[in-house]
Design a protein around this nucleic acid. Structure first.
Length: 442
RNA sequence: GGAGAGAUGGCCGAGUGGUCGAAGGCGCACGCCUGGAAAGUGUGUAGGCGGGGAACCGUCUCGAGGGUUCGAAUCCCUCUCUCUCCGCCA
């Protein structure tokens, strides 16, 4: 959420940023007009309240001195104010809500180095800040070559036997899968491997959060109010709870409504959780296989930092996610998303796209975003800067997949498939697979 | 699900209609004291919003939201959460 004061002071920068986003007709002038009304109401209301408070104290004093006549006189005077105060309060609430509603539907503003573009065709490949492109690329596993035509994951022998879409459809409908045997085991191994990597080597705190959250939490990270239709909700008394579309929601909201000490930062959280998405707008897309499911496991990374550190933390988080690809020997590229392709809360986003030889294409397996204070303002998450008597400031939040387990399973299957339908197990996963070096062999 | 108790500042804890954003204690910060420290001692110690160049001033906030009243931490209503006992249960 934007700070209206910032918009007031930087209307041109705001309008320029909004023009770079897709399908938006937001103008600073409209917001400033609401704010103008809001402040007028506040000034009038405060004046009336001040008068009331002063007179009420005098009534108290008069009563203490048993001067009933004076008290009655003052009470008559203050009674006249009563016409305005309740309506003024109602008016203030209404205009505050109007402003908040308007602001909460506005997406974040891109950082200066984000490429401007309308859609994914405007994304730019990213080779890392440090070192030459060649150095960064040198850390990335090479594209595998095959002596046969590589298959898509669901056609590979071992997966074909252990990935049951038919029974899943009977249980739950389309876009669900039942994994069995060694494929189920491999999925579990991937999740454990990633979680261990981030907790043991990258300094993230393991968290096991709720998978059902209130609307307020979804609002805090920016999923609501705009994208209500993208998620699953379950009835809960008179109310409802959302099934988390990503662990970003509970992990980021861990700091909501709090004032942290600067010394505590950065906070780094990771969790392995299911993610639930309605995929309402993607009918007919990626219908085969388990690329796009209503439910999938994901290891999420969340960092909470100071404004000064958030951009560095973004690069660090990207490196943490890239390490997963590197350890698994999966070829990938990193894209710097353009303004038109970024999510609602992000100021800048890197997508890691893994190579899928069966599809002969790159597919997103991780998305790493820095959100600035956008979510913090929605969550009321602040920190007190070190040193004496500093006012609290909003924290900066970041989130990234580290990585999507379901899609990583697809990537391992497709990249390590053998002609006989078996799949080799990357070395890093073998300890999690009871030492197996391959699955699906005879 | 039934019955009951509770929610006050960073923490503990007073406060049941009047000058209370709120006693006292702890913690913390700065100072004094000390060769240095401890002890002692003094001062300070919430956030939001609005006005103002600033100093500062006003206003709102005692779980949340409404209401009663000239005036609410204190009275009423609704909600949320926590705790205890019973029931049920992985």
């Amino acid at each position: 959420m934007f700070d209206i004061k910032w918009i007031r002071d930087n209307p041109d920068a705001f309008d320029k940023a909004m023009s770079q986003r897709k399908n938006l007709s937001v103008r600073s002038a409209d917001l400033i007009a609401i704010d103008e009304r809001r402040r007028q109401v506040i000034v009038r209301l405060n004046e009336a309240q001040e008068k009331r408070n002063t007179l009420s104290k005098q009534i108290g004093q008069a009563k203490a001195q048993k001067d009933e006549a004076k008290a009655a006189e003052l009470m008559a005077e203050v009674a006249r104010l009563k016409d305005f105060i309740p309506s003024g309060e109602a008016e203030e609430r209404a205009v505050e809500k109007e402003l908040r509603d308007a602001l909460s539907a506005i997406p974040n503003m891109a950082l200066d180095d984000v490429p401007v573009g309308d859609d994914e065709s405007g994304n730019v490949e990213y080779f890392g800040l440090n070192g030459s492109p060649a150095t960064a690329a040198g850390m990335r596993p090479a594209k595998p070559s095959f002596a046969f035509a590589p298959k898509e994951h669901f056609d590979i022998g071992v997966a074909d036997k252990n990935m049951d879409f038919e029974i899943a459809a009977k249980l739950s409908g389309s876009r669900f899968v039942v994994l069995k045997g060694q494929v189920a085991r491999l999925e579990r191994a991937l999740g454990q491997f990633m979680l261990d990597l981030h907790t043991n080597e990258h300094g993230y705190l393991e968290v096991q959060p709720p998978f059902l959250v209130r609307d307020e939490a979804m609002y805090g990270t920016g999923q609501l109010p705009k994208f209500d239709g993208d998620f699953f909700f379950t009835a809960h008394g008179e109310s409802r709870l959302a099934l988390i579309p990503t662990a970003e929601v509970p992990l980021t909201n861990l700091v909501r409504e709090s004032i942290l000490a600067e010394e505590e930062l950065p906070l780094r959280f990771t969790a392995l959780t299911p993610s639930f998405r309605s995929e309402a707008g993607s009918a007919g897309r990626d219908t085969r296989g388990m690329l796009r499911q209503h439910q999938f496991n994901k290891v999420e990374l969340v960092s909470v930092t100071t404004p000064e550190e958030s951009v560095n933390e973004h690069e660090r988080m990207l490196a943490c996610a890239e390490t997963v690809m590197q350890r698994l020997g999966l070829h990938y590229r990193v894209m710097n998303l353009c303004t038109g392709d970024m999510g609602f809360s992000a100021r800048k986003t890197y997508d890691i796209e893994v190579w899928l030889p069966g599809q002969d294409t790159y597919r997103e397996i991780s998305s790493v975003s820095v959100c600035g204070d956008f979510q913090a303002r929605r969550m009321e998450a602040r920190y007190r800067p070190a040193g004496e008597k500093q006012a609290p400031r909003y924290v900066h939040t970041l989130n990234g997949s580290g990585t999507a387990v379901g899609r990583c399973l697809i990537a391992v299957l497709e990249n390590y498939q053998q002609e006989d339908g078996s799949v080799l197990i990357p070395e890093a996963l073998q300890p999690y697979m009871n030492g197996l070096t391959a699955i699906g062999g005879r």
